[in-house]
Nucleic acid binder design. Structure first.
Lengths: 238, 238
DNA sequence: CGTGCGCTTGACAGCTGTCAACACTTGTGG
DNA sequence: CCACAAGTGTTGACAGCTGTCAAGCGCACG
């Protein structure tokens, strides 16, 4: 799952000659909307961003969370997801260069295509897991993912709401809440307010997350491009 | 879901100057394996092909079915899925040209990238659905998809086994079987042996499949490239 | 301090996986 | 042609999980 929340550094390479603008958004504010022309891509300087889609039945699906250093909005054509500020955020904003304009070296295109293929691979794995894993396994993996995000500190900050987590993992708020409580009751975590959790039994949590976490975080064949782990959210097309 | 089972004609354009070889496989035979170097791509001449992955826990996940005219195995680097013959099949086999070699026009690269982005979009939609739809909805959509495959004929041939369907939709064989029976009991379909079904209430089936079917088959913004609907299975990377 | 929102918790029902048994088809060998 | 075995599909009983409905708690904000 870790790979769902990291971003393609390659995009930066493709646009490195362009200058950036720094923008601020308040928590909850829309950064860009689904379907808008994807004329800019963003890098998180501070805070947390989520990307989401809305479906015909009204359900919301979060496709990724982005933290300091992560890139989002690197879509092609139009944005395939909306992006919203989870917390107050500071982002750097870059103009999109046409990925296939004449100034782009073939080698970078090659890398970009490779990244896309790998993102598809990740999506497939995630797909499988969404259909075959329990709420407990999903949440355990999610927490381990946040831990990794926090440089491995056992004290995890959870910037997003329960409903964000639910819409990301394909669960309901109730189930997420119950599962948090359950993990705490089993001594695996200690809940410290709404936005903070301490992992008290890391091996236990890992063993629950098990393959779920492994199969998303650890990609065996990383020989082609290290930055190829992609967030689903930023790879939607027009 | 229809888009999950069609293929990128663009790949053919990228390799049109190469000659093909015709091959035959018996039902159940392996065409290529996950992880093998993706040196060839295939076009189904006759029969049905499935692409699949195996996961650490032993579970199998089918990522796509391919029928006459469909292209599979157009992966980049190594195959991200295995391909197996569902029935006896005849395929045409093409050598892969490097997508980024100097002879490839930029315009085609542009189209290839677009297709990849759109495939990601499809994957995301599929992702959402896998987590939020019931067995009945999934199977109804699957049948409608097969119907469309059969040029709209209400009498559908189902070449694959129940367990193939289960592994494709993220269900168990039992649930698939029960759901078939249930749809028949409700008068929506008539089961005619293992490999044939007659849709007796098309509107009813559509209304069950509902958004599931719509959201996968009907892609609103088809202005960029008509062949952009992709099977998940053929877009895995090394 | 009151209101509202997010979060938690409980009761319950529905769905689906698991376990188990059986029917049907296919293929093999006598 | 029949007997048998293996594979596939169907069906039932049951349990576990998760969504739904409903209520209540607690923190944040005005």
């Amino acid at each position: 799952m870790q790979s769902l929340m990291t971003a393609p550094a390659i995009m930066q390479g493709l646009n490195s000659n362009l200058r950036s603008t720094t923008l601020r958004f308040r928590a909850g504010q829309l950064i860009f909307d689904e379907g808008q022309r994807a004329s800019r891509w963003y890098e998180v300087v501070h805070g947390t961003v989520r990307t989401c889609r809305f479906h015909m039945d009204g359900h919301r699906h979060l496709t990724g969370f982005f933290f300091s250093g992560d890139v989002f909005g690197a879509d092609y054509g139009t944005y395939g997801t909306a992006a919203e500020a989870v917390t107050d955020v500071v982002v750097r904003c870059y103009r999109v260069g046409d990925i296939t304009d004449d100034s782009t070296p073939k080698k970078q295109l090659d890398e970009a295509v490779t990244i896309l293929f790998r993102a598809m691979s990740t999506a497939q794995r995630y797909l499988f897991i969404m259909g075959h894993r329990t709420a407990t396994e999903k949440l355990a993996a999610f927490l381990l993912c946040l831990k990794q995000q926090a440089d491995g500190d056992s004290c995890i900050r959870i910037p997003m709401s329960r409903s964000d987590i639910a819409d990301f993992l394909g669960l309901t708020v109730h189930t997420v809440s119950r599962t948090f409580t359950d993990l705490a009751r089993r001594g695996l975590i200690r809940i410290d307010g709404r936005h903070s959790v301490i992992i008290t039994d890391n091996p236990g949590l890992c063993s629950i997350a098990g393959e779920y976490h492994d199969s998303l975080a650890a990609e065996p064949e990383t020989d082609i491009h290290p930055a190829a782990g992609l967030c689903l959210g930023e790879l939607s097309a027009a």
